[in-house]
Design a binder for these strands. Structure first.
Lengths: 238, 238
DNA sequence: ATATGATTCAAACACTCGTTTGAAAATGAT
DNA sequence: ATCATTTTCAAACGAGTGTTTGAATCATAT
């Protein structure tokens, strides 16, 4: 009658199997990418039968989607919630750009500090995926992000009325790139440079990452507008 | 005796075969990634025999390395050459940070405008690869970039004596991310946002990309230093 | 013209991939 | 305790992978 599910069980339940697969897949996708991660690697790491993925998710592609969905839905809802709050507090006045930037990118970075939400693993996975979007992942990401990005773009337009919209969209894109590298990069930067920083500082990097990134993003977003060189104009020569 | 190689030849020579493979591989890698691009796809697109890749390059992995090498060595030599010039002109005085940034990132972007150097195709390929570095590619990139990045880091240290070195390294990393997205992103940004910009402007994007990116990068690099929140200090509580 | 080396070619190699199958085991409700 | 459902399991499927092989073809120099 009590029916309390025991904390430890010798035989994992079906619900456990699903999450074990998702956790193993998330980790392996982050380390090796999608194509290089085989079903046998996933089911082996999750200690479940090979057929379990097809049984619970249908196919490998659908598994990939579910790996992202269970984290992205929460993230984007949170982003929308915070933006709603900011707009409510601001009333008719425009919101400070730094608050908008923090609501979008800061929420993502802060997710990395919560291991229950995927932590750094999911963070790096999403970082690598943004540049590696093969076919159906593009479509999935577009759908999952469509509403959120549009809302934030509009908020930035209103917040920076003097900056041309095209410029804001580009800078939003640049900010995405810097953030993606900030995330994936705790390792990925090692490709291109060994830090030359005392290893003692390596530990508290995550604490200081967010303020560091924010300073950079705001600095880039509010930079003086570019001067386009008119000498490239093709109509100057008859 | 004249032996002039005809412009069009029914049977391509061996030297042609190598470059046809490299061109086809570069394009396919950019579109599908390394794992998802098969030898049969490459040799099919290059219209050469399947065994030609193994004959000319040894293996698929060595082909991947050669695809990067033929472009990266030129790029990085050019970067070093320009930095040498800047340092010679500056003498003992520090170089303006914007000149250093342009020498490193601008040279990369300007490469995209020269179709003979790979153009946008190689540009996007390198953009996606920075976050997708599986195993041996990490090592190859590290070797290919080692000297260049170190030289540029030192130049920035000297150019910004008031900024802590750790901060500069991070901001260099952020700049890499923004640039990578600027490159790969002409398509990749579509994942996350449809521009909402007049399609007429879509044509001259490449012209304006460089000044746009430069403004953002300099703005981020020269942004006010972050204030680290001391409340997270673990030693504040006895 | 002939011999030598470089290149191409069709075929096959051993292997891994994602998925399917049908029976066995576990679970939950009556 | 019996039944119906859900979940697990070992085994196999066909298709596609990178690579190798040995003969055929090409180019070049003697």
């Amino acid at each position: 009658m009590v029916q309390a599910t025991p904390i430890l069980r010798a035989t994992p339940s079906a619900a456990d199997t699903r999450e074990r697969i998702l956790d193993a897949a998330e980790h392996l996708f982050m380390e090796n990418g999608f194509e290089a991660t085989s079903m046998r690697m996933i089911t082996g790491a999750a200690e479940v039968n090979l057929a379990a993925v097809n049984y619970h998710f249908g196919s490998k592609d659908q598994l990939i989607q579910e790996v992202f969905r269970r984290r992205l839905t929460w993230l984007n809802q949170e982003r929308l919630r915070i933006l709603d709050e900011l707009e409510a507090q601001a009333g008719e006045k425009p919101i400070k750009p730094s608050l908008i930037v923090d609501a979008f990118f800061g929420t993502l970075i802060r997710m990395a500090e919560d291991e229950a939400l995927g932590g750094k693993t999911f963070m790096r996975l999403i970082g690598r995926t943004m540049t590696d979007p093969s076919g159906f992942i593009r479509a999935f990401f577009a759908e999952e992000y469509a509403g959120v990005v549009d809302r934030y773009k509009q908020a930035l337009f209103k917040s920076l009325p003097d900056v041309p919209k095209a410029e804001i969209v580009w800078r939003f894109h640049f900010m995405l790139g810097a953030t993606s590298y900030a995330i994936a990069g705790t390792d990925a930067l090692r490709i291109v440079t060994d830090w030359g920083i005392e290893p003692s500082e390596a530990e508290d990097r995550l604490d200081k990452l967010l303020p560091r990134l924010m300073s950079f993003l705001i600095g880039g977003l509010r930079a003086p507008l570019p001067q386009f060189d008119p000498s490239i104009d093709s109509s100057s020569e008859p």
